[in-house]
Design a protein around this nucleic acid. Sequence first.
DNA 1: CCAGACGTTGTT
DNA 2: GTCTGG
DNA 3: CCAGACGTTGTT
DNA 4: GTCTGG
Length: 234
Amino acid sequence: MCGRYRLSRRKQIIEEHFETADWQEDWSPRYNIAPTQSVPTIRQHPKEPVRELSLMRWGLIPSWAKDTSGAARMINARSETAHALPAFREAMKLRRCLVPADGFYEWQRRGSAKQPFCFEVGDGGLFAFAGLWDRWKDPSGQWVKSCSILTTIPNSLTSAIHDRMPVILQPDSYDLWLDPGMTNTQVITELLKPYNARLMRCCPVSSRVNHVENDDVECSRPVEVSKTQDSLFA
DNA sequence: CCAGACGTTGTT
DNA sequence: GTCTGG
DNA sequence: CCAGACGTTGTT
DNA sequence: GTCTGG
């Protein structure tokens, strides 16, 4: 799954990489993005051929939710079932987005031991998670946009650490994934595959990343693991 | 008909 | 909102 | 995802 | 253990 990630590139770099329209919001590099926080997402404008960046709360709040209490459990949606579930079904058909990132964290557990790893694509550059979004009217009448990151079975790199991984889209499938006119969920679901392990890398990182208040480059800096911890790789 | 649920992951 | 259970 | 909190009633 | 906050 994916419960913590990194987006450390500057706004202009994100705009250029994903070929979006200019964005009014600010974005400061983040190394430890946590559920319920505000994150950039990319959507296709429904009428004009333009991709737009938009801040959303991470943890999808369905339009019919009474409150936000369940949102933290909706940070991920299983790609195998999302098309059929009440909370995600309509979003899968009509409200897909990209969630830009340049790293994500997974924790490997062995009994009580817990070791975080940082995963990257290529040399640590930008990539996009497949995302779903919805909007919910809060008690004051304000619309709150929120999003979820799809998950799938792990590839050979991530399976050593965890039994799920986030869906990372190939750049050549961005257009189809984002196309609001594509409502054939069967076609859409074809895109939700484990990313090529040979194009990814990972390494153990400091448990600093465990604490959400730590949000700096140290969170994804590789660390040595001790001999005893080394068995975590086994 | 109304009432109530609607989710993921991990752990075992 | 939609779907299920009673 | 992890970290951290987690509580009622009655009596004085 | 479960639930909330970030």
